[in-house]
């Protein structure tokens, strides 16, 4: 199991775009189960007026997919940590020495999502449970598929997500922080 502190060592996203709370289980190279608690205190609920239809308060689909994508990113980053650690161009410094750390290494970028079906919405109080399975991995790209469950209820099918993998040094940084890169 990987808790928040360890997830920070792996993913470059930070508040408010770090959308993965805990990794429940991981089989490197194969699959991951990870969770994210949806809460009414998240930025996407700020400024929403009262009195809307209940489904207007559904957690945004874009963030469901982003959160799933971050689970996929952890899977890929943990799976490839030992390969990346031994690369001569690996970034130097204490943060980069942590296992699977993305700070000096490769960033898992959202490329495309296909055949994704949102079957029912998620609301504050729901705990999203992502199951992501690694498919074909190529040099510079990876395909992932899976589902999102809330309890026993499947709320989404992620048919095919394709991620581009690029060295961190090739990605421009704004103001010293990464912004929503999966």
């Amino acid at each position: 199991m990987l808790e928040h502190a360890q997830i920070r060592q792996i993913l470059p996203q930070r508040h408010p775009m770090l959308l993965l709370d805990r990794v429940v289980s991981i089989e490197p190279g194969v699959s991951i189960r990870a969770i994210k608690a949806v809460s009414a205190c998240e930025p996407c609920y700020a400024g929403l007026p009262d009195g809307l239809d209940p489904d207007s308060y559904a957690y945004p689909v874009s963030l469901l997919i982003e959160s799933f994508g971050q689970a996929a990113a952890v899977l890929w980053l943990v799976s490839t940590a030992s390969q990346r650690d031994s690369r001569p161009d690996k970034g130097a410094g204490p943060a980069a020495d942590a296992p699977g750390n993305a700070a000096g290494d490769d960033i898992f970028l959202f490329g495309a999502a296909r055949d994704c079906v949102i079957e029912s919405p998620a609301y504050p109080g729901d705990v999203l449970c992502h199951t992501a399975r690694l498919g074909r991995v190529l040099d510079g790209a990876a395909l992932v598929a899976g589902e999102i469950l809330v309890g026993h209820r499947r709320i989404a099918v992620m048919g095919s997500l394709i991620a581009a993998i690029r060295p961190a040094r090739t990605i421009p940084r704004r103001g010293g922080t990464h912004h929503g890169i999966t």
Binding site: G111, A112, R114, G135, R136, L138, G140, A141, L143, S160, I162, A164
Partner: peptide, 13 residues
């Protein structure tokens, strides 16, 4: 682009 090419490859496989 390169990602579309990879998607085509993955679907064929």
């Amino acid at each position: 682009d390169s990602l579309r090419a990879i998607e085509i490859l993955a679907r064929i496989e």
